[in-house]
Amino acid sequence: MSAVAPSATPTADPLLVPRVHEVTAVIQEIPDVVTIRCIPVEGALFDFQPAQIGMVGAFGIGEAAISISSPATESSFHEYTIRRAGAITSALTRLQPGDQFWVRGPFGTPWDLDLDGRDILIAAGGIGLAPLRSAVYALLKYRERYASTTLVIGARSSEHLLYANEYETWREHGLAVFDTIDHPEPGWSGRVGFVSEVVRELGVSGPSTSALVCGPDIMTFLTADVLVAGGVPPEQVQVTLERNMQCGNGLCGHCQLGPLIVCRDGPVVRYPAVAASLRVKEL
């Protein structure tokens, strides 16, 4: 090895430096889920690409990996859609306008949207629509580049359909939106069934299809399997992964899924890279 020569100036890890943000609005989305709109306290908004992750932190409690759900082209704020689950997300979902928190990032691989001329199918389960929302806006902005654009969004019940008030606008801009719920309920005239089943019924998959899938592991591989069975090349199925993250920069080991280090190799990966791993319980 080289000679013993420590750098003259002490250093800090730039990727561990938090950027303090201030909440400008809180939007109650569905039960237990809020969207925090925010701006940095100092400097400009950082650039990101759809599906990239921010390590979002609450004072004295810790950080959670949350995808940035606002459109990447939105230049006046960022949004994080957060579900209340553990201690950290509970603290984050209690934030009020004017409160400060921090973000590190953005981390991870984005959706590949260079899919000109292809039929785009977006499949989302529950809060899995959050990392896809910025992709929806990116696709609709350049709608003419794609042959067709379809979204299948599934939820436990109608009140759990995320961003439901935006579906009409998306439809107007050329996105075919199919929402579905797991079980029939009074007053619901739409589809009932899992996302994978609706994707199969719609017959929207074929060799010209490129898919973006995000949801629980099981929904992800069931849907991907329907797509592949319908003729979609497995490489044309992009999926996002979710694992515990501590550093976001590939060093802490937490986010492993088999051979993958999700914060570095993901969250977006091609289906063949995880088809086997997703099926192994507790991997």
Binding site: G57, G60, I61, G62, E63, Q246, C247, L251, C252, G253, H254
Partner: peptide, 8 residues
């Protein structure tokens, strides 16, 4: 090498 971030 695994590490955790511990906030106190």
């Amino acid at each position: 090498f695994c590490t955790d971030m511990d906030d106190i």
